[in-house]
Simulated scan of single mutants.
Amino acid sequence: MPPLPKMRVFNWAASIEPLVDNMLNVNNVVAGSVLLLDSVKNSTNGQLQSAKATEALHQKLASNKKFVLISANQLAAAKKKLGLSENDSLGSRTKAIGLARSAGAQYVLYSDIKGNVKAPTIDIQLMLVETGEILWSGEGVIGH
Rank of each mutant, 00 (worst) to 15 (best):
residue 134 I to G: 09
residue 46 G to C: 03
residue 103 A to L: 05
residue 52 K to H: 08
residue 2 P to V: 13
residue 119 A to Y: 06
residue 100 A to I: 03
residue 93 R to D: 12
residue 31 A to Q: 13
residue 107 Y to V: 04
residue 45 N to V: 06
residue 14 A to R: 08
residue 59 Q to W: 04
residue 37 L to I: 05
residue 86 E to L: 07
residue 29 V to P: 01
residue 2 P to W: 03
residue 113 I to P: 00
residue 6 K to V: 14
residue 93 R to M: 10
residue 104 G to N: 10
residue 29 V to C: 07
residue 118 K to Q: 14
residue 5 P to S: 08
residue 121 T to S: 11
residue 115 G to E: 11
residue 87 N to R: 14
residue 124 I to K: 03
residue 144 H to A: 10
residue 13 A to M: 10
residue 71 S to R: 11
residue 123 D to R: 13
residue 91 G to C: 06
residue 80 K to E: 13
residue 109 L to C: 08
residue 59 Q to V: 11
residue 124 I to V: 15
residue 102 S to Q: 15
residue 83 G to W: 09
residue 86 E to N: 10
residue 74 Q to K: 12
residue 41 K to S: 05
residue 114 K to I: 10
residue 137 S to H: 13
residue 97 I to T: 08
residue 9 V to R: 05
residue 62 A to G: 03
residue 44 T to G: 02
residue 77 A to D: 14
residue 79 K to Q: 14
residue 132 G to F: 07
residue 53 A to Q: 02
residue 98 G to A: 13
residue 144 H to N: 12
residue 85 S to A: 13
residue 120 P to K: 04
residue 51 A to D: 15
residue 7 M to W: 05
residue 53 A to L: 09
residue 70 I to H: 01
residue 88 D to G: 03
residue 77 A to Q: 14
residue 123 D to Y: 09
residue 21 D to A: 11
residue 110 Y to P: 02
residue 125 Q to M: 08
residue 67 F to S: 01
residue 17 E to C: 05
residue 142 I to D: 01
residue 103 A to Y: 01
residue 15 S to T: 09
residue 14 A to D: 14
residue 75 L to D: 15
residue 48 L to R: 00
residue 5 P to H: 06
residue 63 S to T: 15
residue 1 M to W: 08
residue 5 P to R: 08
residue 132 G to N: 09
residue 73 N to T: 15
residue 73 N to W: 01
residue 22 N to P: 01
residue 124 I to T: 15
residue 50 S to D: 11
residue 136 W to M: 04
residue 117 V to Q: 12
residue 23 M to E: 02
residue 98 G to T: 10
residue 34 V to E: 05
residue 83 G to R: 11
residue 48 L to S: 00
residue 6 K to M: 09
residue 15 S to H: 03
residue 25 N to F: 03
residue 71 S to T: 15
residue 137 S to A: 14
residue 106 Q to S: 14
residue 35 L to A: 02
residue 123 D to C: 02
residue 39 S to Q: 09
residue 141 V to I: 10
residue 136 W to K: 05
residue 27 N to D: 15
residue 55 E to C: 00
residue 63 S to A: 12
residue 97 I to K: 03
residue 25 N to W: 01
residue 59 Q to S: 11
residue 81 K to R: 14
residue 37 L to R: 00
residue 52 K to V: 02
residue 139 E to S: 14
residue 57 L to W: 01
residue 1 M to N: 11
residue 46 G to E: 03
residue 32 G to M: 06
residue 38 D to M: 02
residue 119 A to H: 10
residue 37 L to P: 00
residue 95 K to N: 13
residue 9 V to T: 13
residue 8 R to F: 02
residue 128 L to P: 01
residue 97 I to C: 07
residue 2 P to E: 12
residue 132 G to Q: 09
residue 51 A to Y: 08
residue 113 I to V: 15
residue 140 G to L: 04
residue 76 A to D: 13
residue 29 V to S: 08
residue 79 K to P: 07
residue 53 A to M: 11
residue 119 A to M: 07
residue 140 G to Q: 09
residue 37 L to N: 01
residue 97 I to D: 01
residue 87 N to L: 12
residue 10 F to L: 12
residue 137 S to L: 09
residue 141 V to L: 10
residue 92 S to V: 04
residue 57 L to G: 00
